Simulated assay, not measured.
Amino acid sequence: MSNATTSVPSGLDAGGLDQLSPDVRSYWQMVGFRLRHDPVTLFFGAVILFVILAAIFAPLIAPKDPTLTSMIDRLKPIGYKDYLLGTDELGRDMTSRLIWGARSSLLMGLMPVVFALLIGGALGVIAGYVGGKTNMVIMRIMDVFYAFPSILLAVAISGAMGGGMLNGLISLTIVFIPPMCRIAETATTQVRGLDFVEAARATGGGTGSIIVTHILGNVLAPVFVYASGMVSVSILLASGLSFLGLGVAPPTPDWGLMLSTLRQAIYMNPIVCALPGVAILITSLSFNMVSDGLRQAMDVKL
């Protein structure tokens, strides 16, 4: 009699999933495989991680107090004495202010998107699955907000509420809820008519259980990819609010506010004055590139 043997997928004995054929990988394993082999996404992801770590550990790595002024050291160039990136219009260390400014800029960039994802995503899933009058009411309310450009709506809401970081967060959250709701509603509408959802209804599954078990897993990917791309827009809008005096209040370090206070000195020291703008550009571009990489990695058609 011949001995029975069990076949093992090629690559398991070598360790890791990288050698597995696509047929034996799960969806999320395939997404991870694509991300690990995407150098552009990995690079910009490392940039985002660096900015986040700098914001978290700002008290430890910032060389000076970001609010400490020195009138004799105003607008000094890069490399002056122990000021690595020079000083601003009040003689404050630009290196420390950029590091501390990452905190408020990331907070204003990430939190509105997270809140909008939770609120808008929930409304979109409910509208897409229930349909009928519920869909009509929710989506017509969202359409009202679409009538206004994002930046004007954010400025109007923040200005009406009196400015400040909290009001800026609220205004940006309101701005991002409609597009999040639209994406979630569209994805849910496409999924709710599929066979496995109909089978769940036929077996007596409740609305809540069907949404949690069958709908969310298929809606999460497009909504999450869209949300990651909105972070870069949120950072730009938050910086714009601070630039106009409707966001973070001085003397709190914030990249948009720093651009506003330094704009009058741009002809005296243009390089130092441009540093907050460079920080905004690099961070928003990094989030945009990571979002594009996630979209490609999560695209089942690829």
Rank of each mutant, 00 (worst) to 15 (best):
88 D>C: 10
41 T>Y: 02
87 T>A: 12
285 L>M: 15
93 D>G: 02
131 G>M: 12
128 G>Y: 12
128 G>E: 12
9 P>F: 07
202 A>M: 15
71 M>F: 14
163 G>I: 10
272 V>W: 05
96 S>H: 04
81 K>Y: 03
255 W>Y: 05
293 G>M: 08
112 P>Q: 03
149 P>G: 11
14 A>N: 12
254 D>M: 03
19 Q>E: 11
28 W>H: 00
68 L>I: 00
268 M>Q: 13
67 T>L: 14
268 M>H: 02
146 Y>M: 15
168 G>V: 03
70 S>A: 14
5 T>W: 03
61 I>V: 14
246 L>F: 07
237 L>N: 05
107 L>H: 01
238 A>K: 02
61 I>S: 05
23 D>T: 12
233 V>F: 08
177 I>G: 07
17 L>G: 04
162 G>M: 05
246 L>G: 07
260 S>W: 05
88 D>R: 07
94 M>G: 01
8 V>I: 15
80 Y>E: 07
210 I>L: 03
38 D>L: 01
157 I>V: 15
207 T>M: 14
41 T>C: 13
19 Q>R: 10
210 I>Y: 08
120 G>K: 08
196 F>H: 15
135 N>K: 13
183 I>F: 01
204 G>C: 13
129 Y>P: 11
262 L>R: 02
29 Q>F: 00
39 P>D: 01
109 G>C: 01
211 I>E: 06
181 C>N: 09
139 M>Q: 05
76 K>I: 06
240 G>N: 13
20 L>Y: 01
240 G>Y: 06
46 A>N: 00
85 L>G: 07
69 T>R: 14
167 N>S: 06
146 Y>G: 05
15 G>N: 04
197 V>T: 11
103 R>Y: 01
142 M>L: 07
191 V>D: 02
207 T>K: 10
193 G>E: 13
219 V>N: 05
66 P>H: 05
125 V>C: 11
194 L>R: 15
191 V>R: 08
114 V>Q: 04
157 I>M: 09
